[in-house]
Design a protein around this nucleic acid. Structure first.
Lengths: 226, 226
DNA sequence: CAAGCCAGTAACTAAACGGTTACTTTGTGG
DNA sequence: CCACAAAGTAACCGTTTAGTTACTGGCTTG
């Protein structure tokens, strides 16, 4: 029962550089760790298979806190989904397509998307889960409706520059180009387990992953070149 | 042990032409309707979200029968998965790639795959569910291991003919070509709900579906042509 | 420094769930 | 026509599940 007495610490005031104090009560940390745990649990098991108790345990906290911060299981799932989309959209912002030559820009976008999918398998799983349920929660989300991003517009500019230079076909549109890139990356990764089983070739092998990245760039570029 | 040999098939012997007997007891019919109901339920809700009671009700039978014919929920899911794979593999057999010119053959394969995916959304859902669980049940299945099909071999022949005629690049391989075709179809359809929500364009619209079919053929062919 | 609110815990509950038991009905072969 | 096996039903069972209640301990502020 002898809880350490000098917990003092103003939590966020530890800028000096000392060792981080565990901080027995830290709402932000608790909330964040619930969200992280829920992301894993929902990604691994889908919404129907995810267990509220499992999330609480993974977060190192209590089930009560989960309801305290997020209301119920569905709202928690929505928070997870929103955070996942915010993640990729903000990462996309680090791409500066307008600074690049048209072909190089398309190649960069393809490689960026591939790497993002590769590094964030939980994002792919959540997309799959959400689509299984016909975007039921995504449609509810007001936060995400605003997030559409001018991303497609930027891609359109890039493609227009390529068209003006006579490099690209004039009948291509940015949505199709993006869907092509996303499709090739998404399918390979999200379906790797059944494909590996059926075709007897380990798609997760490093050399195969690298080869598929080059394949995506090749396919995308050759489909838009004149 | 002493299985009676001449069970003397009742049941299907009503060929004479009389009105079809409702057949109060019909094991095959019951089994089939459970399988069909389970396919829907698993496709709509995933394995964790599917409810055994819901399957029994959809099948117009009793939960007991489900356990009678399939053992338990997981074995029923496996039976559903196996049937789904058998469906696409046997449909593939109706494609006679060896009779076609190389370019036409690739185009036919692409359009066939697209149409199959479009007509069998439950197959796509089951694939998604199975991959979420890292092909846990598919790997268990001994029946499906044999089903690999000489499909890839047939595609390889087609591509080789194209290479010999100087139509196709010599560095392409059949698995990549098939994955490209499948990826473009799968992603568009399985992710249509989130994509439609995010990009504000109805991907399920008939004109868009037709355009995407042409897009798949175009992308595939332009990526393999010399 | 005490009042009051907020973070956190554990034990509980009602309903839902997968699976089973005990039983009835129907068809078939001896 | 009787015996037996398979098809089918309904009520039930133990466990798991999402969600709650009642409580403790700690932080901030007037």
């Amino acid at each position: 029962m002898d809880k350490v007495q000098s917990r003092a610490r103003g939590r966020r005031g530890n800028g000096g550089g000392g060792a981080e104090r565990p901080a027995q009560r830290d709402p932000e940390r608790t909330r964040a760790s619930i969200l992280a745990a829920a992301t894993k649990e929902f990604a691994e098991n889908g919404i129907g298979g995810a267990r509220v108790d499992a999330i609480a345990e993974r977060a190192g906290t209590n089930k009560r806190m989960l309801y305290h911060y997020f209301g119920d299981k569905e709202q928690l799932y929505l928070a997870v989904l929103e955070e996942a989309y915010i993640g990729i959209r903000s990462a996309e912002r680090s791409l500066h397509l307008s600074d690049l030559e048209p072909e190089q820009g398309v190649a960069e976008l393809a490689m960026f998307t591939w790497k993002y999918f590769l590094d964030h398998p939980e994002f792919l799983s959540l997309l799959g889960t959400e689509n299984l349920h016909r975007a039921r929660w995504l449609r509810q989300s007001t936060r995400l409706k605003e997030l559409h991003s001018n991303f497609i517009d930027k891609l359109a500019d890039l493609l227009d520059r390529g068209k003006a230079k006579g490099l690209f076909r004039t009948d291509i549109n940015p949505l199709n180009v993006y869907l092509t890139i996303a499709a090739l990356g998404y399918f390979y990764l999200s379906n790797q387990h059944t494909l590996t089983t059926i075709f007897g070739r380990d798609l997760a092998d490093k050399a195969n992953l690298e080869a598929w990245k080059r394949h995506i760039v090749h396919v995308t570029l050759s489909s838009i070149r004149r």
